[in-house]
Every structure is written in C-alpha cells, then in structure tokens.
Nucleic acid binder design. Structure first.
Lengths: 199, 199
DNA sequence: CCGTATAACTGAACTATGTTCAATAGAGGG
DNA sequence: CCCTCTATTGAACATAGTTCAGTTATACGG
C-alpha cells in the first residue's frame, strides 16, 4: 500500500494543529507543552519533531490559521458595510477589535511567538497583512484623493497600527480593564476625527 | 556593627538590578538567566531569591527604572517644546519613539513580562502611566476645549495607544523594517490629521 | 571577649521544559 | 517470507527557574 506512511503523517499533523489550536485558544501560548501535546495526540514526543521542526513551527502554523480567520472576519465586515468609506474603516476596525476580544489568547499568540533574531516574517504573514492593508487603503484613497501613493501607504500603515495599539492596550489586563464599548468608542473617535478634515 | 547585613543586601540588590538592566538592554529579556546573574554578581543563585521573590520581581524592578527614564525623556521633550499644543503632542510622541528605538530591548521588556493572569499592574506602572497621560491630556484640553471630561480621558488613551501601536509595529522586525523617518512621519500624520479639524 | 540564637548564604538537588537519537517496529520490494 | 530501510519511539540530555537542608556569619547579652 503506497502512501500509508505519508497518510498517517498528514493525519498526525492535522491532529497536532487542532490540539495546539485548542490549547492556545483556551489556555494561551504558554500552556502549550510538548508532552501534553503528544499525550493528547496519542503519539510519542519525538513524533512531533518528525512533522514539525520544533514547537515554534507548530505555533506558526496555528498562527497562520488564526490570521486567516481574522482576515476573513474583517473582509466579511467590509462586505456588509455601507458605501461610506469612513464607515467602512470604522466597521473594519471594530471587526478587528471583535476578533481580538473573542479570540484573545489566539490573537495574542500572533505577536507573542519568539521570532528568531533577524529572521524574515513568513510569507503567509506578509500576504495576509498585505490583504488587510488593501482593505484599509481602498477607502483611504476615496477619503484622501489628493495625496501621493507613498503617503497613502504610510497612512494605511499608520491607521492599522493605531487601531492595533488601541485594541492591544485596551484588552491588556495591565491597563486595568477598559470596557469593550470604550474600545469601540476610541476606534471610532480616532478614525472619524482623523478623517474629519479630509475634504 | 548594626546594619551590616542590610547594607550588603542593599548592595547586592543594587548590583543585581544593574546587571539585569545591562543584560536586558544588550541581549533582551530572554537572555536573563539566574545562574549567569549569580555568577556575574559573585553570589550564589539562592542569594537572588533572598532579595527578590523571583526573577520576574527583578525584571519588574528593572522595568520600573526603564519606565521612569522613558517618562523623564518625554517630560524633557515637552519642556523644550513650543507652546503650540499640537506640536507638543507630536514632539512627545516622537520622544516616545526615540526612546523605544534607542532602548529597544529594554522597552520591549516593559511589555514582555509574563503577567500572572488577573494580577493587578504594579503601582509604579499605573503612576508613571498616569503621568504620561497627563502630559497628553493637557494639550488635548487646549485643542478640544468643548468636550466632556470622560471624552478627554478616552481621547488621551486613544492617542497614546495609537502612537504606541505605530512605534510597536514600526520597530517590529516582522514588519520588515519601517525606516525611522517613516515612523516619525506616521506619528506626525496621525496627530496632525487628528487635530486638524478640532477648531 | 565569648557563647549562643538568629539570620543569611550556599549550591546541590528538584522540577519542568524543549529537543535529540540509539534502539525498535513496521512497511514495501524482491 | 525475508531483508532493507525508514518512521517511530521514549528514555536520556540540555537548560531553565526555584527550593531548602546544611553551613557560615552576624548581632547581642552577659
């Protein structure tokens, strides 16, 4: 029987990803342990290293899926949004917030992976990020028609970073619990105020 | 001789903080190791635990100092700034960026400490953050005189978070190296645009 | 100045973690 | 059916933070 090995490997891989995804979502990145993973998957610890180079590889795989779901949520919100470009920005940003709040630990894991110094970000990360940036850049082009392309790129990145910062610090425990509504208000405040003087 | 013990304890404490500070600044939080620390300080590993509850305590002490230096830098920038409140915001934000860039690993350590779930942020953190917020709130009150106090608080937090997000993602390697000037441009862009329609 | 109670300091040992690799088991070809 | 070769296993290794019984040093009363 050809491919019996490859088949089992693929099944194990899938299984490990699902278990890791659930663990991260429920208990956070730091709760991911090789031995627990192996025991839940019904395999030896070493088997993990036949399928993934190390645990970081596995986490990156989970992160790719998380990031993809995030992108899909934002895209869906955009699809349902009205034509007004400012409203589109607000709705997308609030969808970002909603995803981060509802998938807090998985979302945190996106940024908490130890990136080996100097190592480039994985392709899927850059692609997904590029997609998000496009969602932002399009309404921005409508709102600020007169500006140079490089300024558009800067604006896009700046607004994404701003919303990310608001959500990050807003959801952070250390900031002693900003209510969800306040986070949405801050997002709307910044985006509306930012775009208020455009025309 | 009274206090000989307390004296040595204090000296060891000081020494450990300095060594930890240097290690974090030069090699990052993850390079901080109890055994290295003890060997550099010329004491036993156990001695660290006579002075600090655990390594996180030590890191928090270093972080308090880092945060204090950060606050001082921003305050200094504000003191040298012109009267114009928008300019004041821009200059403070760029000072924040400068500090983060010049003390990258120490600055990262401020946010990378594992906070035990549910544990409150330490007092010094809240105090220093409050000071930073005041620096921001004052010019904002001049720029937006008509708004309610709770909206001012929200605005303050939103702007701080936005700048933080821009600096965070800008300095992040994964974002494939945003040039320093671009970070400053994004900061100025967001703050100027945000405040442009105020009057 | 000495003896004793108290406290601090030591570092080997314990626990927990990711990772490796010699030994084993099993698949696929002849 | 046997043989080879590879995938799989899990005990062992490396490296962490942390603990604590034993040791050493201090402070203080007499």
């Amino acid at each position: 029987m050809a491919g019996k090995v490859a088949e089992r490997r693929a099944a194990l891989r899938e299984n490990l990803v699902l278990i890791a995804e659930r663990t991260i979502a429920q208990q956070g990145l730091s709760a991911l342990r090789a031995r627990d993973l192996a025991s839940e998957a019904g395999c030896a610890v070493g088997a993990i290293y036949n399928v993934f180079g190390d645990l970081t590889d596995l986490v990156l795989t989970v992160n790719a899926r998380t990031f993809h779901r995030l992108g899909a949520d934002v895209a869906e919100a955009l699809a349902d949004a009205p034509q007004d470009p400012v409203e589109q920005l607000v709705i997308m940003a609030q969808a970002y917030h909603r995803f981060a709040a509802e998938n807090h630990l998985a979302w945190r894991a996106l940024f908490d992976v130890e990136r080996a110094r100097g190592e480039a970000a994985p392709d899927w990360y850059l692609e997904e990020m590029g997609r998000l940036f496009t969602y932002i850049a399009d309404p921005l082009a409508v709102i600020f028609p007169g500006r140079a392309p490089d300024e558009h790129a800067l604006l896009t990145r700046a607004l994404f970073s701003s919303v990310h910062g608001i959500v990050l610090l807003g959801l952070d425990q250390a900031s002693s619990g900003v209510p969800t509504e306040d986070i949405d208000r801050m997002i709307a405040l910044v985006l509306r105020q930012f775009t208020a003087s455009a025309k």
